[in-house]
Nucleic acid binder design. Structure first.
Length: 427
RNA sequence: GCGUCGGUCGUAUAGUGGCAAUUACACCACGCUGUAAACGUGGCGCCCUCUGGGCUACGGGGGUUCGAGUCCCUCCCGACGCA
């Protein structure tokens, strides 16, 4: 048993627990700080730790391209390579099927926007004209950097155009070489604009890939080491086996598909689950309800790529244990800071002479030692420290949000905590 | 004093008869949800009934022209050269 539930939120799917990994425990609900290329941008591991991060999420595809998993393995695995001694999760490369595929060259997010109909949103300007995405797809499909077939995905390296092939098996092999604690099955993250027929097709393919990931994961090391050698190397083998494989539920924004997918993935031999794909902004919590009433309660669930404060609050309530998101660190580097009253853009004129900390009462290093005025100056001067201090604050804020949520679950006061947060936090 | 070149949005630039006028930076605002991201988008003379219209503008003044940042005259300013 890798996951222990400590307490549940009454009348909901939410819970607080502890997830045991080979590199220590994760107190859930928890945020996995994103360090795609084996580094949380702008921060040293020590700083990451000081923001309260328990676990880091890196990316298989990026590390495979650069520096290559073989080098990471030679360096002693990703933990040693990046000097992060806590747990590490790797995404399988499945998100890049979307970001370099359907999303490439479009201005779309995996979250479709509230109050905007699908048709409206997908109409964008091309060469000064408004063209629906349908015709755009035809125009640009050949230029995408990810092309999917039944067996896997062919990627073009965005840096130099090199072609690379990912299959469920290669993703498993690379993640094994990276030596991370939790690995994800290779899946296809679909576009929120895909219709139900395509979502179904992609979902079914993802299910077939999930089966192949399980087989590849079980057979890891097979074929390379002969039977007699294996018995000699038994200890090594056992070490390798301490890597948890999570399957990913897909199905986009369609209830029918989400339920089918949850059922299907729940029935496979995974140690935990990822909830992936695209969502309607308004319906994330609904989708989680469809899924999490089906997924077995005793296994951990990771809501992939979600990290807006309000989404975290409802995600926790709806039974997600782990989250990860580039948002806190990305918007930090772009000058947006999280506060309990909402986001602020530190580059706005009004902060240039503001001698108060980012957030009164915040205990992060940045708030304890610097003013908005100084942060504003750093951003305007394009100083590298701007990214660091802003990232520290946003990560601290996010981790602290999880910490407070967890404590309130343990104390049985989650709904009060939620209401209070939602009352203050303005989008 | 003579000669040459030059004076265009905060700065630096493009523009040699149809121009509210290029580009960059700066400035202003917004966006970013399993990282193509220290990035991207929009705005940046004034006004309005704002998928459009009006006014004022390329050192000052005058002129040629249907039309001038662009051509001519003159003045002012700057750089360089010669006295």
């Amino acid at each position: 048993m890798i996951f222990k539930i400590e307490k549940k939120i009454p009348n909901s799917l939410g819970r607080a627990g502890v997830l045991q990994t080979p590199h220590g425990e994760i107190k859930t609900p928890a945020f996995a700080t994103v360090g795609t290329k084996g580094t949380v941008k702008a921060l040293t591991p020590r700083e990451v730790k000081e923001t309260g991060s328990q676990v880091v999420l890196a990316n298989t595809y990026h590390l495979y391209l650069q520096p290559g998993e073989k080098i990471v393995k030679k360096a002693g695995g990703l933990h040693k390579f990046m000097n992060w001694s806590g747990p590490i999760i790797t995404d399988s490369g499945g998100f890049q099927v979307f970001s370099l595929g359907a999303a490439y060259g479009e201005r779309i997010s995996k979250i479709s926007k509230t109050g905007v109909s699908l048709d409206e949103e997908i109409v964008e300007k091309i060469e000064g004209e408004k063209v629906p995405i349908r015709s755009k797809k035809l125009l640009q499909a050949k230029d995408k950097l990810a092309v999917i077939d039944e067996d896997g995905v062919t990627f073009k390296n965005p840096i130099n155009g090199d072609k690379h092939r990912f299959t469920p098996e290669t993703s498993m092999e690379i993640q094994r070489a990276l030596g991370t604690d939790i690995i994800f099955a290779f899946d296809e993250c679909t576009s929120p604009h895909a219709d139900i027929e395509y979502q179904r097709e992609a979902m079914e393919r993802t299910h077939r890939w999930a089966e192949r990931c399980i087989i590849a994961h079980k057979n890891r090391g097979e074929g390379k080491i002969k039977r007699f050698a294996k018995s000699i190397l038994r200890i090594e083998e056992e070490k390798i086996q301490e890597q948890f494989l999570f399957g990913i539920v897909q199905g986009g924004r369609f209830e029918e598909l989400r339920k089918i997918s949850a059922q299907k993935i729940a029935g496979m031999d995974f140690q935990g689950f990822g909830i992936g794909g695209s969502f309607d902004k308004e319906d994330i919590d609904k989708a989680l309800t469809w899924i999490n009433t089906i997924l077995p309660e005793e296994k951990p669930r990771h809501l992939l790529g979600i990290g807006e404060p309000l989404d975290i609050i409802s995600g926790i309530e709806n039974g997600a244990d782990l989250f990860d998101c580039v948002m806190p660190t990305r918007i930090a580097r772009n000058g947006t800071l999280l506060t309990r009253f909402g986001k602020i853009n530190i580059e706005n004129r009004k902060f240039a002479q503001d001698l108060t900390p980012i957030e009164e009462g915040c205990l992060c290093y940045s708030c304890q030692n610097f003013t908005k005025c100084y942060l504003s100056h750093l951003f305007r001067a394009k100083e590298i420290l701007a990214c660091t201090l802003a990232s520290i604050h946003n990560l601290y804020f996010t981790n602290n949000l999880f910490k407070q949520a967890r404590e309130s679950i343990l104390q049985g006061t989650y709904s009060k905590f939620k209401e209070e947060f939602k009352r203050k936090y303005k989008k």
